Amino acid sequence: MSKFFIFGAGYSGKAFARDNRNRLPVTGTTRSADNFDALREAGMTPLTFDGMLTPEIDAALPQTTHLIISIAPDEGGDPVLAAAHDAIAAMPALQWIGYLSTVGVYGDHGGAWVDETAECRPVSKRSRLRVAAEQQWRELGEKTGIPVAILRLSGIYGPGRNAFVNLANGTAKRLIKPGQVFNRIHVEDIAGALWHLAGRNQGGIFNVTDDLPAPPQDVVEYASSVMNVPPPPAISFETAQLSPMARSFYGENKRVSNAAMKAGGYRFRFPDYRCALDHMWPSGNWEQGEPRSPMKKP
């Protein structure tokens, strides 16, 4: 039987575990035991990992067949490899490794389409660290003969993280920068892509992103129309008050292709933001189980 282990079982990791239709064993790590109940609710056995292996992790890794890494690198490099490189290389049952990266590794391409063969031009430090971490995981795969799938994720949204939530709590912004587009992916498609690739023990680099790169204000406007509420006022990017990190995202402009995932047989559940929002609003799961806002479906 396949056994999965997730280093960093956060938003995407919990979605993966909830999508476990064959009820396979999944173990996930978190930094704090305070998060154990959330991991158990998602269907995982929870363990703590904060940069060091524990006896519980040491006991779980040798039985693991499929390993997923969803922890960002830092100044010291990839924290999982720093703590567990040799342990992972020696895992006797390991068949596949999945590493969750970001389309940020491509940097800025002036709005042009890019696929997995495109040059990586990382702009931010966090994206440069991702490029280095990707290479380290690929090298481990070459050394051990284990297939490594690098999943380059675009902007993640889903229950609890979407334009409806932002409109309901008053944080939505309609920021206008002519020509700017962003790429996005529903968290259920991250889960689906992981199960698809893991089920085939398929390695390689894959963009996990939907069909429709779009200006961010288009998403806010569409969500407003679905909620039947006025959109927030338009704000020029040039005059907007943004944090340095938020402003840095607008320094990268590209349209990311998902053709490789489709060619490999994966069918996206939410091919664009419109169908995802159309699904989340009437189902009510956009709030992720939180009490309903006064703004209700008309």
Rank of each mutant, 00 (worst) to 15 (best):
residue 278 D to H: 04
residue 87 A to W: 00
residue 281 W to A: 10
residue 39 L to K: 06
residue 180 Q to P: 03
residue 87 A to I: 01
residue 241 Q to M: 15
residue 252 E to S: 14
residue 89 A to W: 02
residue 240 A to K: 03
residue 128 R to V: 08
residue 204 G to V: 07
residue 172 A to V: 08
residue 278 D to I: 05
residue 182 F to P: 01
residue 193 A to P: 04
residue 211 D to F: 01
residue 297 K to W: 14
residue 23 R to H: 15
residue 67 L to V: 00
residue 136 Q to K: 11
residue 47 L to G: 04
residue 212 L to E: 12
residue 49 F to N: 03
residue 64 T to N: 01
residue 223 A to C: 10
residue 277 L to G: 02
residue 99 Y to I: 07
residue 196 H to L: 09
residue 207 N to M: 05
residue 212 L to A: 05
residue 101 S to A: 12
residue 270 F to G: 06
residue 171 T to K: 13
residue 196 H to P: 05
residue 296 K to D: 13
residue 274 R to K: 15
residue 145 G to D: 03
residue 135 Q to R: 14
residue 292 R to E: 13
residue 119 E to V: 08
residue 297 K to H: 12
residue 127 S to K: 01
residue 99 Y to N: 08
residue 189 D to A: 06
residue 183 N to L: 08
residue 6 I to A: 00
residue 114 V to N: 10
residue 94 L to Q: 02
residue 281 W to P: 03
residue 101 S to V: 09
residue 192 G to M: 05
residue 102 T to A: 09
residue 257 S to G: 05
residue 186 H to M: 03
residue 167 L to F: 07
residue 22 N to W: 15
residue 245 M to E: 12
residue 199 G to R: 00
residue 202 Q to G: 02
residue 30 T to A: 15
residue 233 P to E: 05
residue 174 R to L: 02
residue 47 L to K: 11
residue 238 E to H: 06
residue 68 I to V: 11
residue 63 Q to E: 04
residue 80 V to H: 01
residue 123 V to P: 03
residue 28 G to K: 09
residue 196 H to S: 06
residue 267 R to E: 13
residue 164 F to Q: 10
residue 201 N to H: 10
residue 238 E to I: 04
residue 229 V to I: 13
residue 84 A to V: 04
residue 142 E to T: 11
residue 279 H to T: 12
residue 135 Q to I: 14
residue 296 K to Q: 15
residue 153 L to Q: 12
residue 131 V to M: 11
residue 137 W to D: 04
residue 283 S to C: 03
residue 92 P to H: 03
residue 112 A to H: 07
residue 242 L to E: 14
residue 99 Y to S: 06
residue 8 G to F: 06
residue 146 I to K: 02
residue 66 H to I: 00
